[in-house]
Simulated assay, not measured.
Amino acid sequence: MIIFDKRILTHFDFIQPFLILPIIFLSHILISEVSQMLAIKQYVYFGIGFMVFLFFFLLPIRKIDWLIPATYWLNIILLISVEFFGVSKLGAQRWIEIPFVHFTIQPSEIIKPSFLLMLGYIIKKNPPEEDGYNLKEFIKISFFIFLPFFLILKEPDLGTALILLLTGYGVLFIIGVNKKIWLSIALVLGISSPILYQSLHDYQKKRITDFISEEPSYHVKQSIIAIGNGGMSGKPKDEATQTHFKFLPIATSDFIFAYNGERFGFIGNLFLISMYFLLISHLLSLNHKLKDDFLARVITNGIAIMMFIYISVNISMTIGFAPVVGIPLPFFSYGGSSFITFMCFFGILQNLLAFRFDKEYRLLKINI
């Protein structure tokens, strides 16, 4: 008799969808109020995201982990190709157009899952000693972090480059690196910060200048007004004037946190932040369960750190505590790239959790 292997459900982490689905549902409510067309497109992203999740959930990752380096280097080749065959949009060359179909892909988004998988693969093959990685091993792993960082930075895309850099070293911090190495890095960064600032592009310097100036930019002003307009419990749809009259820019993506504040007030924003906090805390708590499973630990911590960076920067940006950059809220801001990327992340994570008892990836078992 062939039956479904119930161990898959036993090891499947149901807490993750329990915390993610309310964020997606709330996002869809807000986006449908602004534009029915965007809401319909969001259904398409939901469908693609679910298929991507299902693909990576069923993919025998542990069984074919020897392919991870190949996918990493393929993505590096795509990043290099941007320099020669890339398509420019809004002054940045970040996309590659697929011939004949006129569809573009953004290699800096595609590389994120393979980047974390590559780190997990390297750390799994060479786990840290009790006092953490020494300088030699740290430099070896740093090469795989800095290579995509510099290629993406050259596009230029400082935001995505920094996300990969911080995520990579955040994972290493949790996994374990000798403390002397971190102290040395902090000292070097402190001394070289003026040189790093001078190397920034003019538009990047302007963002920093706007941030530290006494008068916030127009976008931030309207965002703060929208949040203040929501008060404690928010305004009805017709009274959400900042969004209704289009004073609030990019209300469905970059500044959707401000729109959520205008519609559902302090309580709505507190609910959203609480969902994110619980999700990140839950992911970090898995370190105890996955103590010796370095591949799963790297993916788990990488997702948690990346989400924390996205959320912190986006929310800080909307209230004037950070420069305005195009970093979305995971599962909340409108857009396909971010949503599909995080569905890919969680598909990989659930795969590593659900099938950790069976490297053959058998969904069914036969009882005779």
Score class of each variant (00 low, 15 high):
Pro148Ala: 01
Pro22Arg: 13
Ile64Phe: 09
Trp66Val: 11
Trp95Ala: 13
Asn269Ile: 06
Leu19Gln: 09
Cys344Pro: 01
Phe266Met: 14
Asn367His: 11
Ile311Lys: 08
Ala322His: 05
Tyr334Thr: 00
Ile303Asp: 02
Thr300Trp: 11
Asn75Glu: 05
Leu286Ala: 14
Ile77Tyr: 03
Ile175His: 01
Glu137Met: 08
Phe264Met: 10
Phe14Lys: 12
Trp182Asn: 01
Asp65Glu: 15
Ile145Ala: 05
Tyr121Thr: 02
Gly234Lys: 13
Ile139Gln: 04
Asp254Tyr: 02
Ile311Cys: 08
Leu38Gly: 01
His282Met: 05
Ile311His: 05
Phe266Arg: 13
Ala258Thr: 11
Thr104Asp: 12
Ile311Phe: 07
Ala92Ile: 03
Gly120Ile: 01
Glu109Thr: 06
Arg356Ala: 00
Ile191Gln: 07
Ala251Ser: 15
Val171Ser: 08
Ser81Leu: 09
Phe345Arg: 06
Ala251Leu: 09
Val52Cys: 06
His28Phe: 13
Pro113Lys: 04
Val188Gly: 03
Leu364Ala: 04
Ile31Asp: 06
Leu90Phe: 14
Gly265Asp: 05
Lys237Cys: 09
Pro17Ser: 07
Leu189Met: 14
Asp254Lys: 02
Glu215Arg: 14
Lys179Tyr: 11
Lys89Thr: 12
Val82Trp: 03
Lys112Ser: 00
Ile105Gly: 05
Thr318Tyr: 01
Ile111Met: 04
Pro194Leu: 02
Leu54Asn: 13
Tyr259Phe: 15
Leu135Val: 14
Asn314Val: 02
Met1Asn: 13
Gln16Leu: 15
Cys344Gln: 02
Ser108Cys: 07
Ser281Asp: 07
Leu38Ser: 03
Thr71Asp: 02
Gly336Val: 00
Ala304His: 00
Asn229Tyr: 09
Leu279Cys: 07
Gly159Lys: 08
Leu364Gly: 03
Lys63Phe: 04
Ile250His: 07
His219Ile: 07
Lys206Ala: 15
Gly190Pro: 11
Asp13Arg: 03
Asp210Arg: 01
Phe53Val: 02
Phe143Ser: 06
Ser193Ile: 08
Leu78Ala: 11
Leu116Glu: 11
Tyr121His: 03
Tyr43Asn: 12
Val44Gln: 02
Leu272Cys: 03
Ser312Cys: 12
Leu38Gln: 04
Pro216Ala: 01
Asn367Pro: 01
Tyr169Ile: 15
Leu164Gln: 10
Phe50Thr: 15
Leu200Met: 10
Ile141Val: 13
Ala92His: 06
Ser281Gly: 15
Ile2Ser: 09
Pro236Met: 08
Gln198Tyr: 10
Glu262Met: 10
Ile315Thr: 07
Thr10Met: 06
Leu329Ser: 07
Tyr276Lys: 09
Leu54Tyr: 12
Phe50Ser: 11
Ala322Tyr: 08
Lys205Phe: 12
Lys140Arg: 14
Leu9His: 06
Leu279Ser: 10
Asn367Leu: 12
Ser88Glu: 15
Trp182Glu: 02
Pro148Phe: 00
Trp95Glu: 12
Lys63Met: 04
Asp13Cys: 03
Ser35Asp: 01
Phe115Gly: 00
Val171Ile: 15
Ser281His: 14
Ser27Phe: 10
Leu19Phe: 13
Thr104Glu: 12
Phe277Glu: 05
Ile227Trp: 03
Trp73His: 07
Gly320Asp: 05
Gly47His: 06
Ser35Met: 02
Met306Ile: 07
